[in-house]
Design a protein around this nucleic acid. Structure first.
Lengths: 241, 241
DNA sequence: AAATAAGCTTAATGTAGATTAAGAGTAGCG
DNA sequence: CGCTACTCTTAATCTACATTAAGCTTATTT
């Protein structure tokens, strides 16, 4: 199962960043397809460990009973994702709701000048998707990119709808998950309108404490809505106190 | 049933804005209490019309069947609210999920300098609440205030939980409602980080087309995160084109 | 009807944060 | 191993928007 390098198929390509991304996508598509449709690649014992993680994640909400666990696992697809690999790009329709088991992602938009603006980070035991694109099956304006090598579980829209319709507990659990995300986002929105860069950085440190040493400063600056240069100044100011 | 003036009880008070607000709250509490606990005040035929509105609102989602409609109506409380009246104030715990049948509300936070920052407007057929405060039963940092004389339907947290537990369709419907609110808020967040005041005003006009002539400029400015003076300048600039 | 408050606009001046550029440290890659 | 590509920082200059203040118009209240 050493097929995690994109170039196992096309090793002869003089690979730039661009080519590599395309190849990764292609390979992932193939892997996903084969895994799901034919159960062709059998997951190893170690890999099967990971599925426990997504099951026990729900213990924090309404825990899943045996049939629900089985239903969830039967429609979830495990993927490994390399650093800098995209699981969503602008103009693509977002087709999966993604659970992060290991690693870290950023979701961002790009403005007219080409500057990236981070909307959300997602590390272990968090969900990420462009919910708007997923629901309305419209092209996304966002990118979701791995900041670290990661392991994820993905549910397609049809499978998720299937779960909702057959096991009402998922309606409940995802209602609560989304509500919590909404609360977080609303707090951030209020902060963003009403606070200085320094205060926003302070809040970032509180909210993403576990990520603050894991993320490069450029990513943090893009999240709190300032330039990396000004973040430098803010940090210098804080260090004096 | 002409008891919509606060001073029917305390007409002798030399009423300032402050006193009036307090009296309104008191009266509303009494009305709500009496309505719900004793069915003391019977709603008039015209008032009963309004309940149809909240039922048919759900036709846009999973429509409610007869028992669900009855369950909803039995725990919903109708209130009339005057302009400038608060249905939530800072440090209070938000106890209701509110459906706006008529009129218009703003939800806002106040920063250290005392400036208000609008997070959300809600007019006919929209929901409003500080979901964070409602869920966690923690004091809110927000205000919800009527911008116009309004008619609302409120559900308490316990009643809402009761609905969720007995009629799974409400889990579904509120999941979708919240998801849509999340999508809107996320779009706004992205906009806010990545656009100029002029572009944000443009987007406001698109998103709240039905409210743009109904809201004062000061409220719009507070929503898009600029001063009313600068909004004046932006509008002047747009008029030239 | 008069008084008070709320709302819109214009203009002068002030400031948080952007932009550009340049140097120095560090990580990934061939 | 050395090279290129990120990353962080400091500093000079620039700009989008804030602040203050004043005049005017339109609602609300008494």
């Amino acid at each position: 199962m050493g097929f995690t390098q994109a170039n196992f198929l096309f090793g002869w390509v003089n690979s730039t960043e661009r080519w590599r991304a395309i190849l990764c996508e292609l390979e992932d598509f193939l892997l996903t397809f084969l895994l799901k449709e034919n159960n062709y690649f059998v997951t190893s014992a170690k890999e099967r460990m990971n599925t426990r993680q997504i099951i026990s994640y729900f213990d924090g909400y309404l825990p899943l009973d045996a049939p629900e666990q089985e239903a969830l696992l039967s429609c979830v697809v495990e993927r490994k994702v390399k650093r800098r690999q995209f699981i969503l790009q602008e103009n693509d329709v977002c087709r999966h709701f993604t659970f992060v088991a290991e690693g870290c992602f950023k979701m961002y938009g790009v403005d007219k000048k080409g500057t990236e603006h981070n909307l959300q980070f997602a590390a272990e035991n968090d969900w990420i998707a462009d919910i708007g694109s997923l629901h309305k099956e419209k092209p996304s304006k966002l990118y979701i990119e791995a900041l670290e090598p990661s392991v994820i579980f993905q549910i397609s829209k049809t499978d998720l709808w299937h779960l909702y319709n057959n096991y009402p507990k998922f309606d409940r659990n995802f209602r609560v998950i989304i509500e919590n995300k909404f609360i977080e986002l609303q707090n951030r929105m209020l902060q963003n309108i009403s606070s200085t860069a320094d205060e926003r950085y302070e809040t970032f440190l509180e909210q993403y404490a576990h990520l603050s040493n894991r993320l490069p400063n450029t990513q943090i600056a893009s999240y709190i809505g300032i330039t990396p240069e000004f973040l430098s100044k803010v940090r210098a100011g804080r260090a004096q106190k």
